[in-house]
Design a protein around this nucleic acid. Structure first.
Length: 128
RNA sequence: GGCAGGGACUGUUCUAUCGCCGUGUGCCAUAGUGCGCAGGGAGGAAAGUCCGGGCAGCGCGAGCCACCAUGCUUCCUAACGGGAAGGGGCUGUGAGGGCAACCGAACGGCUACAGACAGCGCCGCAGAAAGAGAUACCGCCCACUAUGCUGCCUCGGCAGCAUAAGGCAAGGGUGAAAACGCGAGGUAAGAGCUCACGUCGUGUCCUGGCGACAGGCACGGGGGCAAGCCUCAUGGGCUGAAAGACCAUGUAUACCGGCAAGCCGCAAGGCAGCAGGCAGGCUCGCUUGCAUUGCCGGGGGGUAGGUUGAUAGAGACCGUCGGCGACGGCGGUAGUAGAUUGAUGAUAGAACACGACAGAACCCGGCUUAUAGGUCCCUGCUUUUU
RNA sequence: GCCGAUGUAACUCAGUUGGUAGAGUAGCUGAUUUGUAAUCAGCCUGUCGGGGGUUCGAGUCCCUUCAUCGGCU
C-alpha cells in the first residue's frame, strides 16, 4: 500500500497533454470533469494532472487550496485503480478539472472521489 | 470608560501520522525519479504592474528634429514620479490692529506649486459688453453747443426746470468671473484723474538666507484657464528572463566563415558604388561586409530534453557615532525558499482572541490598494467623576 | 511572468476643440385592422464601472481603483 505521489505519477509532458485533450475519453463526475486515455509506454500505471481554472477562482490562494484538496483525495484512493490497471497490464493518463464554483470540504470531496473512481474503473473495463 | 476615524508595530502556536521540493550525508550498488538520517522550505503586502534601477540582447559614438516623462527649494538615495526638512499659496478657529478695504500672532487641515509681461486658442446660457482701454440696458449729469417752458429784468442777459446731441461708468441688473479694493480729494456728473493705505506684477537695486523666499526701495496697471496648444529647464535608445548563454541526440537543405573576381598604385594605401548601421526621421564620424558562382570548413532551422541565467543582496538584525530628519560611517552577529504542468498540504488531538487580507517564478528600492484580532499613539463625539 | 485594449439606456453602439447625453432595436400607450404583423403618432429608460482632483462647469482632462477582453512560449 503506497500513498506516494511522485513525479512519475504526475502528467508533465506538454505533448501528452495536447494529445489527451484532442483524443481522450471525457465524462463528468461532479464536481470534476474527467478526461482519460490509454497510453503505450507508461512510466507509471496512471499519470494524473489536476486543474483548478483561473476563470472560476480568481485568487491564487483558492486555486492552490482546491488543487491540494483534490490531490490528497486522489492520493488516498488511487491504490484500487492501480491494482486494476496492473492486472490488465495497461497505463493511462488522466486529467481532473474542477468545475464547481465553490470550494468543498475535504470530507465531501472524499465521497465525490469515491464515485469518480468507481465510474472511471467501469469505463476502463467497458473499453477493454 | 464607550463609539468612530487615522497612523505605527505585530500578523496563531504545539504534537503525531501520511505525503511534496531542494541541500548535506550514509548504505545498497556501479545504479536510481532507490532506501535511510539530519536540517531548510511563501508575505507584509508575495497583489496591482504605477515608477526607478541592476542584469541581458540588439555594430559603436555624437548631434538635430520628433516623441515621452517630470516641474517651488535644499538635502537623502545606486536611481526615482519615492522620502526628509523648509518656503509660498488656499483654508478653519481667530488674540489683536485699522474709519474701511484689509492685515494678522498662535494652533490645525489641504496643496501636481515653473512660466498667463513670448505667442495662439477658449470662456456655453445670461448680459450692453467676456478682453478691443471696447461698450452703455436701467441709470447719473447739463460745465461746453442747441432748443422749449417759467420767473426776474436795465430787453440784453441771468436763474430754475426739461430735452437733444454730448459727457460718465458711481449705483442697479446678468454672470463663476465685469477692467484693481477702500477712504479722502476732485467734478456738472464721474473716473487711478490725484493722494494715503492695501493687493498684484516687474527690477543688472539694497539687506538677510546655500536656496525657494522674506523685508525694503523704485516703477507699472493688471481677468481666468497651461491636469488646452505651447514656452523654458532637466532627464530618457529600444526590447524584456517567454531576455540571453551552453550541452547532448541528430540529419536533407537554408545559414555562417575563409579564399578568388570594380578602378588607380610596385607597395602601403586611396577612390567609387551598395548593404548592415540604437528598432520614428535625418546628418556626421568610426566600423564591418560585398550581388552571384566555385572550392574548403563550420554547424543552423524543426522536434523533444538537460544545464545555466537563479538566488549573498545598493541584504537583514544588534550596538555605537554623526545629522532636526530622511539617512550615512564604523564594529559585531546569525545565516539564507528556489519550483519549471510549477513544492509548504491533509487528517487527528490540544491551547486561546476561534485565525483577516491573501501564495514566490530573475533580483532589488519605492508607491498604491486589501487586511480579523492584539499593543501603542493621535483626533473628534459622548458619558461619568473630581 | 510581460504587453495592450474596452467599460455610456434592457441590448448594440455614437458622442471633434470641456458648455442641457443621443441613434437603432426592445418595451408601453393610442391610431389603423374582424384580429395579428407591418406602418404612423407619442411615451419610458441613464450613480456615463467606482472614488478623488483640476475647472465657473467633466462622459470628455489628470490620478487612483474595480471588472471584462485580447496578444506573446
Amino acid at each position: 500500500m503506497a500513498f506516494t505521489f511522485s513525479k512519475a505519477e504526475r502528467l508533465c509532458s506538454r505533448k501528452q497533454i495536447d494529445r489527451l485533450y484532442a483524443e481522450g475519453h471525457r465524462f463528468v463526475a461532479f464536481p470534476f470533469s474527467v478526461q482519460w486515455m490509454v497510453v503505450d509506454t507508461p512510466t507509471s500505471p496512471c499519470q494524473v494532472m489536476i486543474v483548478a481554472p483561473k476563470r472560476r477562482f480568481k485568487h491564487a490562494v483558492d486555486r492552490n487550496h482546491v488543487r491540494r484538496l483534490t490531490r490528497e483525495c486522489y492520493r488516498m484512493r488511487k491504490q484500487h485503480l492501480y491494482d486494476l490497471l496492473n492486472e490488465h497490464g495497461i497505463g493511462i493518463v488522466l486529467s481532473l478539472v474542477y468545475i464547481h464554483n465553490e470550494i468543498t470540504s475535504f470530507e465531501q470531496m472524499g465521497h465525490k472521489m469515491d464515485k469518480l473512481m468507481a465510474a472511471l474503473e467501469k469505463e476502463i473495463l467497458a473499453t477493454l
